[in-house]
Design a protein around this nucleic acid. Sequence first.
DNA 1: CTTTGCAGG
DNA 2: CCTGTAAAG
Lengths: 269, 269
Amino acid sequence: MSIRLVSWNVNGLRAVSAKPEWRWFAENTCDVIGLQETKAQPEQLTPAVASPAGWEAHWASSVVKKGYSGVAVFSRIKPLAVRCELPQPEWQGEGRILHLEFEKFHFFNGYFPNGGAEEVDEHGKPVPGRFKRVPYKMGFFEAFTAYAEECRKSKPVVVCGDFNIAHRPIDLARPKQNEKNTGFLPEERAFLDRFTALGYVDTFRHVHGDLEGQYSWWSYKTRAREKNIGWRIDYFFVSEELRPAIRDAWIESDVYGSDHCPVGLELDI
Amino acid sequence: MSIRLVSWNVNGLRAVSAKPEWRWFAENTCDVIGLQETKAQPEQLTPAVASPAGWEAHWASSVVKKGYSGVAVFSRIKPLAVRCELPQPEWQGEGRILHLEFEKFHFFNGYFPNGGAEEVDEHGKPVPGRFKRVPYKMGFFEAFTAYAEECRKSKPVVVCGDFNIAHRPIDLARPKQNEKNTGFLPEERAFLDRFTALGYVDTFRHVHGDLEGQYSWWSYKTRAREKNIGWRIDYFFVSEELRPAIRDAWIESDVYGSDHCPVGLELDI
DNA sequence: CTTTGCAGG
DNA sequence: CCTGTAAAG
């Protein structure tokens, strides 16, 4: 028996689901799909998109700002329990976390905060390497990790989503140029060091080792995808206990419709 | 000798000038073109659009709000003088009036204020027949008329533009339904009664009499143009002294690219 | 419905 | 560049 899971930052589910590329959903053969940046409440979507036949749909939408953030999980397997957002009110309201408890593992779908725009000093001059939302981002990661560790006491953990961090130089096309850009800052990378040190396995690297040029996001701004100038910031992590269950992990770089592409994981379970 | 003038509310010059319909400009054989709702500063346009060879271009752009209102005049004839906006600061800042003095007449290109949204009472309930900007609109018309009359003392006047008023029931497809809508309110119509009583001739009616079904604007909202559910709110008026010079007046209802179509005037001069 | 501006990514 | 808002027409 195996279970297949996929994660995709869709950059606006209303937009993607109106494109021909959304056939990806109908053609998919996986069991669980985690979407990020849905930027919509289910009521704003057509029923075929919001409540597809054969799937159970769960939503966490932003309540602080319309059309912002938001995650969804479609599952062919009925979860034992579902929880939206992190436990503390401090980290709630942006629609960033969905937690589905399945029989064999806790599943988390996360849209982790973007570092935001560069800080400016009192004269309006940008401060290199300082980004407005990096403190929030780091706090969110710490709170998430504590919650995941808590859940892990009962059963193994699977975490997917857009982490907005490339872990190592091999995980982005231009590491040197981006050492002072959010997404590849030392403190952001250090979080993934700690996270993996806790026993969360980067399943793509577990399967593919140091294979180069493997990315899941390309900036729209410079048509970077044509040249594969990308970042690997979308992940499937599993807690150490599930390492033996990793059958496959992949990046669906032939799937278009968003500035991210889907990433996937197959577990023997 | 004759002079041909055309007026067009383009509803965003950046948008129109990027459409194939903008060939209208290149194919035009008139001498003076007045545009309204340009919604752009000339710097935001390509040089071919902002400074076309063979034309002199003049601009009055909104300074109170970006991408709002704005008028332009392209002329193959060099004017003796050019003036932006009305003389009083009270009516300046929205980029609504361009005044070009030619040898034989004063030319005004106007984008007269829209009546705006319906007023709401203290409970948020709409007040039928009351519109937020109708007072501003009426004040603007009075100030414009005073200025035109002042200029008329030296030579005849030609006024074109979007008046945002249908004068008589024949000037819109659904007069009964719109008696309480801005654009056909009694007080707005009464302004055009006074304006024409002062001796400003509606050149289209002068040439075509009570020809029905002739409109220059159709709402995008209901695909009204397909059914010719329109309003004639774009005009060429000339002061009485020029009545004998009116050779032709027309509506270019086959020209697309905006929710308005161009209207034109040919004068023997 | 359509064009703008703007925030956010 | 692209997806969302909202204001205005």
